[in-house]
């Protein structure tokens, strides 16, 4: 027999054996997976940002298919369109959710909250927060080391060198909430985008007494409660010496903005006022 024929026989036989093994293993260990998981996962953005509260897009898809329900399952990146798409795949009803955006509830820029000491060390808010109250002296204010910027997967944040505060780029923000989690001081909040992106919020979370807060930061909320009285819609509550505007109730009348003695309430994307007086809040940085 010529060597060629031997080679063909040997290789052919071994090919058959291996094919049989592969076939057997395939049959034996086949994982049956709902094909809809792939379909849902396909529809998802695939950024694995964790904004939905799951480890990644696939985990999110698996949970939807397993529970056969969209309840509490919302991908902030894809928004309502995506929910509709997933609903179609699953044969479920989609529920509309108001689009949201991240807002920075601190206006303690370098100008408003002068440094009382120099921080040196790891550029991490989480660490600096454990170390001290921060150069501004405010125990609740922005530390300006950019953990939120670091956490943003969508290029929607950057650090303003001049103010030392992060800036949220509204058009890029998908309200995934990564920055909310990254901030050790819970300054960033997801709020409804509002009509024409108009929003009003208290840009301060300081819970210290008014006098102390004001000493550290000139635009701090001092908990005076003037805005609460001014609001005709019961949208503002004063808790822990700091005011909070409920975005579900707020009708964007802007009365509170003019009422605030420190300029801690910020209005965004409104047309300029007809009144002549200059509002310090126009130079906000959100």
């Amino acid at each position: 027999m010529s060597p060629i024929i031997i080679a063909i026989i040997v290789l052919g036989a071994s090919a058959l054996v291996f094919a049989a093994i592969i076939f057997g293993v395939e049959k034996q260990f086949k994982v049956i997976e709902d094909p809809r998981i792939d379909e849902v996962a396909e529809a998802l953005p695939g950024a694995n940002c964790g904004g939905c509260g799951f480890a990644g897009c696939r985990a999110f898809a698996e949970t939807i298919v397993k529970n056969e329900s969209l309840e509490g399952m919302f991908c902030p990146v894809g928004g309502n369109d995506l929910t509709a798409e997933i609903a179609a795949v699953m044969g479920l009803e989609a529920e509309e959710k108001a689009p949201q955006v991240a807002v920075l509830r601190c206006n303690g820029s370098k100008k408003h909250t002068p440094e009382k000491f120099i921080y040196e060390g790891a550029q991490s808010c989480a660490f600096a927060n454990n170390l001290s109250a921060g150069p501004g002296g405010c125990p609740n204010g922005c530390l300006g080391l950019g953990d939120c910027v670091e956490s943003c997967e969508f290029n929607a944040m950057y650090m303003d060198e001049e103010t030392g505060l992060p800036v949220i780029i509204e058009d890029n923000c998908v309200s995934c909430g990564a920055c909310v989690k990254a901030c050790p001081r819970n300054i960033i909040e997801l709020r409804n985008k509002g009509k024409k992106s108009r929003r009003i919020f208290v840009s301060c979370v300081n819970t210290e007494k008014g006098a102390i807060a004001k000493k550290n930061c000139e635009v701090a909320c001092i908990g005076c409660g003037k805005c609460v009285k001014a609001c005709a819609y019961d949208a503002i509550v004063l808790e822990n010496k700091v005011a909070y505007i409920d975005f579900e109730k707020c009708r964007l009348c802007r009365k509170c903005v003019t009422e605030c003695p420190t300029g801690a309430i910020i209005e965004l994307n409104f047309p300029p006022r007809k009144v002549k007086e200059e509002e310090s809040s126009n130079e906000t940085n959100v």
């Binding site: 440094e115 000491f117 120099i118 921080y119 040196e120 170390l131 001290s132």
Partner: peptide
């Protein structure tokens, strides 16, 4: 002038 604060 300002003091420096950093971790040990």
């Amino acid at each position: 002038s300002l003091l420096t604060v950093s971790g040990s």
